[in-house]
Design a protein around this nucleic acid. Structure first.
Lengths: 250, 250
DNA sequence: CGAATAGTGTCTCTTAGACAGTATGCA
DNA sequence: TGCATACTGTCTAAGAGACACTATTCG
């Protein structure tokens, strides 16, 4: 049998049906707290439970396109604002009993977005919200989405260390203090303002000055801050390491 | 429709057929060079081309189990030796035209193994070899496996920086010089012997002494080296960073 | 004016890396 | 005996983090 005959005789239905979905762990920062995009499922399985936005991959889109489509559907975002959202593949979850319907393999993605409008529930959901991640523990999540979220949060914390992706939580122009607030929010503890400031400016390509400053000082006083935009570095050298956590090492 | 009715009425065949495969980028060190496990495909598509070991995920195994099975089939490994091989998920590749037969989503894995016997071709292959990665450029690889291998090699180089996984390329007991050889081989450039030695011993939990030494000194002279085994650290603190590569940062 | 904040200076401690030096064991 | 190698000592430069200080702006 040559290659052409083989392809002609080939029937995909001979293989066991596996469904492939994409799920999105979308993070943003609102009111100084890290928030996560969740939908409430309208249909079984897990109807009424909170879940990550996601769904079956369509025949005409690759995995990243599917994830971006799901994100667009739930956030109502499009165009330039959607394109500015950072999206990366997180990991793939393929346990045997993830979904009671059939074997479902889910390719999870991770998204970083600046503060966005309240989401609108798409057809497969009856509600959609930005939920503070601190409120997660009390929620019953569908499927293994709790595990996926944990992995996404850890990836996010780690990515801030060695990439400039913290800037993706901010508007194109930002102050060093706003950037520090992103780190403090994602890592969950305060950083030394002076040392952070010097460190950020010393890493080549992390930020570049716009020459401008904010219109006003801080709400409770203080000078106007200089404005920066993201630089051209894709990795931070040297990295901004999280304060060492002995526990997590072993 | 309640949840039970829904599940009863649910027909998986309503969804477009997507196949899910696992592929394995298996690395080992032979004769001081980094080697990669490749098979030569016996059947179309890409019959006769070299490819990563892999195949369809079976209904009764999760993704990691599928990857370990594929690895076992091609290496002939089993039991304790197989269990000692480090295996982690790498990334998932789901481009539209990866496979001419149908939509195939492949979950790639990365494996680190000590020097193993020559592989034996399994049923779906007519040859299997450990190929030095330096010889890759001249080979025509099936599917998008060249891209997957590139990603795997970069992940391997990066993992040596902040995890103790270099020890997985070695037998359970090893010398610091052997460990240094792993780093030099994977990173592709020489390291300073004295500084490396001190650094490894100074990272908590990286290696622990067995109390024993090698039977003989080096082939060309020198004292006997002390033997170590892997410690209990899962992350290296502080990390062993590769010499900075300005080019790759931007 | 008082308080909060942006940004800088300086000191200390740790680490990376260069280099040198000693002891060991093979040919 | 000569040489390669295991391992340790020491110095320097860079970076992390603590602390102090100045300047600016809001209420």
């Amino acid at each position: 049998m040559n290659e052409q005959d083989f392809l002609a005789a080939y029937d995909p239905r001979d293989y066991p049906a596996v469904a492939v979905t994409v799920d999105v762990v979308a993070l943003t920062i609102r009111d100084g707290a890290l928030h996560l995009l969740l939908i409430r499922r309208a249909a079984p399985p897990y109807a009424g439970h909170w879940a990550l936005p996601g769904g079956f991959v369509r025949p005409d889109e690759d995995l990243a396109a599917g994830a971006r489509r799901e994100l667009a559907e739930e956030t109502g975002l499009g165009g330039e604002r959607l394109r500015r959202v950072h999206l990366e593949q997180l990991a793939t979850y393929g346990g045997l009993d993830r979904d009671p319907r059939m074997r479902v393999v889910s390719v999870a993605h991770l998204a970083f977005a600046p503060d966005l409008p309240d989401p609108v529930a798409a057809t497969d959901a009856d509600d959609a919200i930005w939920l503070p991640v601190t409120a997660l523990s009390s929620r019953q999540l569908a499927f293994d989405h709790g595990r996926i979220i944990d992995d996404g949060l850890e990836r996010a914390r780690s990515k801030l260390e060695y990439t400039p992706l913290a800037t993706r939580f901010l508007e194109p122009e930002f102050t060093i203090t706003e950037l520090r607030a992103v780190y403090e929010t994602v890592w969950g503890h305060p950083l030394h303002a002076g040392n952070f400031h010097r460190k950020v400016l010393s890493v080549p390509g992390f930020v570049e000055s716009t020459g401008a400053s904010t219109e006003r000082g801080g709400a409770r006083g203080g000078p106007r801050a200089k404005l920066y935009r993201a630089g051209d570095a894709r990795l931070l050298h040297p990295a901004l390491l999280r304060p060492a956590r002995e526990e997590t090492v072993r």
